[in-house]
Amino acid sequence: MVPTHLARHDFAPWQAVLVGGARSGMLPSNAISTYGLTETGGGVVYDGVALNGVAMQLIAGRILLQSPSMARTYRHTALPLQDGWLDTGDVGVMVDGRLRVQGRADDLIITGGNKVWPHVVEQRLREHPLVRDVAVRGRPEPEWGSIVCAYVAPVSPTNAPTLEALRHHVKETLAAYYAPRELVVVDSIPRTALGKVITAELPQ
């Protein structure tokens, strides 16, 4: 199951639901968060704990995996393993012995020397009553290096939130540098079938 399905269907009667494929934010009590890649044959880490036979390690924050289900090769190129380890391209931390995925290494926004993970800002902005959907990305800026830009699909196209209102909303619970410095109002956020934002289709 992917997070998009959670919003569209009622899974309360189910004993357990495996959720993977994208960052899911707040999960229902019967959901189990899974982490893995196509190369690992799907989820190999459940609720932050590696399955039997699966090994994981963090090097400079990057998540590396070993798994008996690991693909042997791509169709035309070899799998880029390092001594049997696959660099996932994701960044995470260990919290109480469990893996917490922070996001793709390429998604990290460094603004004025501060590190901002887009999903943290997105989660807070989704709590604003005028926001239906949102994506956060970094945009190059000479003074700050990058700035936090929020792409917002409002609940009502005639009543979109202002940048000032969103900045105030974010700063109520997060450090000021998390607050977006730019707002782009859109009709909808382009997403894949798995609910992942298609960054290339966001307005430039």
Rank of each mutant, 00 (worst) to 15 (best):
D107V: 06
V136T: 07
G53Q: 10
V134I: 13
A71Y: 09
A31P: 06
T88Y: 08
E122F: 13
S33A: 12
P157Q: 09
S156M: 11
N159M: 13
P180A: 00
V120R: 10
V155T: 15
G48N: 02
K171P: 00
L65V: 15
T162Y: 01
G20S: 14
V93I: 14
Y178F: 15
Q15I: 07
P154L: 12
N159L: 13
P13R: 12
L37G: 05
D90S: 04
A50E: 14
W85K: 00
H128W: 14
G195N: 06
G48P: 04
V184Q: 03
S24Q: 12
D133R: 03
T173A: 12
G97E: 03
G48S: 03
V121Q: 02
Q66Y: 08
Y46K: 04
V186M: 00
R100C: 11
M70E: 04
P129H: 10
K196L: 06
G43W: 07
V45H: 07
N114I: 01
T40F: 09
T192F: 04
A55Q: 15
V45T: 08
V95F: 07
R8W: 09
M94C: 09
P157A: 11
P190C: 02
D107K: 04
N114E: 12
E141W: 09
L51G: 08
V120N: 04
A175W: 00
G36E: 10
V54K: 08
V170T: 05
A78Y: 08
V134K: 07
N159V: 14
T111N: 05
V131M: 09
G112I: 01
R100M: 12
L166Q: 03
V91R: 12
L79I: 10
R98N: 12
A7P: 02
V197C: 05
K115V: 00
S156V: 13
A12E: 14
R8D: 11
I59V: 15
D133N: 10
D187N: 12
V116H: 07
R62W: 02
H9A: 15
V17Y: 08
V148T: 04
H5W: 12
R126I: 14
V2L: 07
M56I: 13
Q102D: 11
Y151W: 03
A160C: 06
P13L: 06
E143F: 13
A55C: 11
A55F: 14
G20P: 09
I198P: 00
A78H: 11
I32H: 14
R75S: 11
L174G: 00
E141H: 15
S146V: 02
R98S: 11
P203G: 04
L79E: 01
Y74M: 02
I147R: 09
G53A: 05
G112T: 04
V121P: 08
Y178W: 03
A60G: 05
M26K: 15
